[in-house]
Design a protein around this nucleic acid. Sequence first.
DNA 1: CGGTGCCTCAAACGTATGTTTCAAACAGAC
DNA 2: GTCTGTTTGAAACATACGTTTGAGGCACCG
Lengths: 224, 224
Amino acid sequence: MAQSDTVDRILDAAEELFADRGFSETSLRMITSKAKVNLAAVNYHFGSKNALIHAVFARFLTPFSATLENAFNDLEERCDGHPPTLNQTLWALTESAVRMPQRNENGISIFMRLLGLAYTQSQGHLRKFLEQEYSQPFSRFMRLLKEATPQLSAVDRYWRIQFMLGATAFTMSSSDALRDILQNKLGVETTVQEIAARLVPFLAAGMQAQDTMLMPSLSEAPVA
Amino acid sequence: MAQSDTVDRILDAAEELFADRGFSETSLRMITSKAKVNLAAVNYHFGSKNALIHAVFARFLTPFSATLENAFNDLEERCDGHPPTLNQTLWALTESAVRMPQRNENGISIFMRLLGLAYTQSQGHLRKFLEQEYSQPFSRFMRLLKEATPQLSAVDRYWRIQFMLGATAFTMSSSDALRDILQNKLGVETTVQEIAARLVPFLAAGMQAQDTMLMPSLSEAPVA
DNA sequence: CGGTGCCTCAAACGTATGTTTCAAACAGAC
DNA sequence: GTCTGTTTGAAACATACGTTTGAGGCACCG
């Protein structure tokens, strides 16, 4: 076989199992037996379980962040001078994710699940790894968001970005299960692309909502 | 001391540790040593670690779902006949959560984190438990959402509800960390109530976004 | 053919986990 | 005080985990 088929088989199996069950809940023995590989191979090729987790992310994120940089370059070039709109920025990100070359038909959805888990599970080492390896495209995205929403205060913008991240990471992190439910309840098939097409308008509308609207005062309502 | 102080001390410690670190990452030994209680007490009083997790949720969710039912009753009564608006429905939920009697100052935020984790971590037993114990208020909330957004197709509404859940669960599930970051970066203090006050308009706007807007065709754009 | 580097394998190591055990301490009733 | 049922305590149990070990295989080069 190719020069290290084992490495890829481990990465494939790990990616899928991590996405299904989380990091702590996935043991090396599950991974190696799914990959049909010896247990010791993980520590031989990657050094540790944490390093394997990093490798799973790097395999996707490194080409993705390159694609994303290009998309942002194109976008800013097309807009020469004035800042891209919120919709343009969100679509640049979405398209970059959706059109990444994929190893299999569920590539994006699996990876979205992993990104959601990375944010949610406490895994300190992972957050540190992602921050120091991929801070550049992330900061650039944040800058574009800021320029696209000059009407928001810094605090409002901060929280709305968190809400966007949440809606995205959460939806994608359980999108297989959600798709199944949808298919059972409504008999509709849904692709990741279609979910993204529904998500982006939702995010854009939320991001641009009028300032804190009619909010019933918490203090004067009767206690239950 | 009271008739089983041990039980409450275990629940308090477990609640906090689970929220901080997740379920699998929190061992019974951490819980019992934080609660200053013997290790065997957990299995004596609760039967198993999973049952302890259920008890942590039940302690909050049972009174909360009663409060929520009352809030929905009040709301529908006030609206006699016509369905409550989206904003009213979201606020009824938010207020019920925010004004629940709390054991300590971080009560809600801790519990929101737990709910987020419940959805995110795979923990099949937990999802099953929550579904069969608290399906009634959940279904009612879904019905209210449906009546408040008659303009949406069933599929659109389904996905937008997922986006709302995601933004909420995700934000709340890391809200302490986010609050810390915000304080460091912008020097602003934020309470759960204030986060909710920012979240609801975001959700309402996203929920009522105009139908799928200008979406650059995925097929004609240049490949990166 | 002999040797050198890379890789695989089965087995074991040490540690941490959830759970069980059983004796001791305790509280309340008679 | 003595008995009874409930709760606590220290210790052990079995199991699963991540990691390490060292012998063996296999390909390549001289």
